[in-house]
């Protein structure tokens, strides 16, 4: 987050905003439950990837999911949609 200007002189004439990862900060801190993937069960169907509202699931080379806990808000859609129940939601801090 170093692109922020300091004075008017460094600012654009109007509110022009730059695409940035984490525009609202590390939204992973919103989470109370964390999704945990059991890769032995995962069938690489990629449903969790396409349904993640936060783009916090990366589709890896082998199509298995990798969860970015910095930004995952813990909504649980991935766990709910996983056809083989390979993703479980675990309470943070336990």
């Amino acid at each position: 987050m170093s692109i922020a200007p300091k004075t008017c002189k460094e600012m654009p004439v109007t509110t022009l905003s730059i695409p940035t990862v984490g525009s609202m900060g590390k939204t992973g801190s919103w989470r109370t439950f964390r999704p945990v993937v059991d890769y032995s069960k995962c069938t690489r169907c990629t449903l969790c990837w396409i349904y993640c509202p936060d783009g916090a699931i990366t589709r890896q080379e082998d199509d298995s999911p990798k969860i970015d806990y910095d930004y995952c808000k813990g909504c649980g859609i991935c766990s709910n949609e996983c056809p083989v129940k390979a993703i479980t939601m675990e309470r943070e801090g336990e």
């Binding site: 008017c8 600012m11 004439v13 109007t14 509110t15 022009l16 905003s17 730059i18 695409p19």
Partner: peptide, 20 residues
């Protein structure tokens, strides 16, 4: 050169745009 125009602007910046 993608950017968003006129998205949210907080009290931290609003006055400067008006000053300009």
């Amino acid at each position: 050169n993608p950017f968003s125009h006129a998205n949210l602007v907080s009290p931290e910046w609003y006055m400067e745009f008006r000053y300009m």
